[in-house]
Design a protein around this nucleic acid. Structure first.
Lengths: 122, 122
DNA sequence: CAGCATCCAATGAGATACTG
DNA sequence: CAGTATCTCATTGGATGCTG
């Protein structure tokens, strides 16, 4: 059977359900989500254009897409100012803030791991 | 320019370099890696066939592939017993153990987030 | 400025069959 | 038992151009 309705997607669903860890990964697992989150953590409010400044390589599509996903996951909030030159700011929600420690730990561990591997890790 | 040597890959490299968080994600970011790691955390030694028991949906290819990656990243160790019926056991390295707390935190946060979103998250 | 829409490329994952 | 090889498909990410 070649044409099933995506084993991949089904599998993912199953995993997300059974393992909170995979669930978490799915929330922050986009290519650029770490960078976006990071920018939000360091700055209270971030404008669309600011994202593009701190993450120059990202494309509009991906940025907008990831922002929407994060918003849908209640991690960030989108604040629109109905002004003449459109202005939109993004900020972390409480939920978003609640993952700061986790993200910092990931950063720390990542650095630690990188060191260990470079050296003579077991 | 359509045919560069993978912007995607280059981007990923750049991210990994600047952000330990993304680096960490890249280590545990495979579809099944969480499950594999989880199995390793709960059991000291896990045989190839055991993985397939606890993760029935995984295919041989992906399992072997992920195991190799984790091994390359020094997170797990592959112990081969040159016996008549081939036996191979996998276990966490010290480095692998060092991420237990992080993974647990991710699990906890994931559960927390799931609850929050289900309710009336901000 | 902020952001969609369309289209294309690259990666990751799955099925199946075969081997030491 | 514990894989490997090949091949295909799904998903994700990227480039470009257009709009309110």
């Amino acid at each position: 059977m070649r044409k099933h309705n995506s084993t991949n997607a089904l599998n993912e669903q199953a995993i997300l359900d059974q393992c909170g860890m995979a669930y978490t990964l799915s929330l922050i697992g986009g290519r650029w989500k770490p960078s976006i989150l990071w920018a939000l953590i360091r700055n209270d409010k971030v404008r669309y254009s600011h994202f593009k400044k701190v993450i120059p390589e990202i494309s509009d599509r991906i940025l907008a897409l990831h922002l929407r996903e994060l918003e849908a996951d209640k991690l960030i909030r989108r604040v629109v100012y109905a002004e003449v030159p459109p202005r939109v700011e993004y900020e972390l929600t409480d939920l978003g803030r609640s993952m700061e420690v986790m993200l910092e730990q990931m950063t720390t561990w990542g650095a630690f791991h990188k060191e260990a591997v470079k050296g003579s890790a077991t």
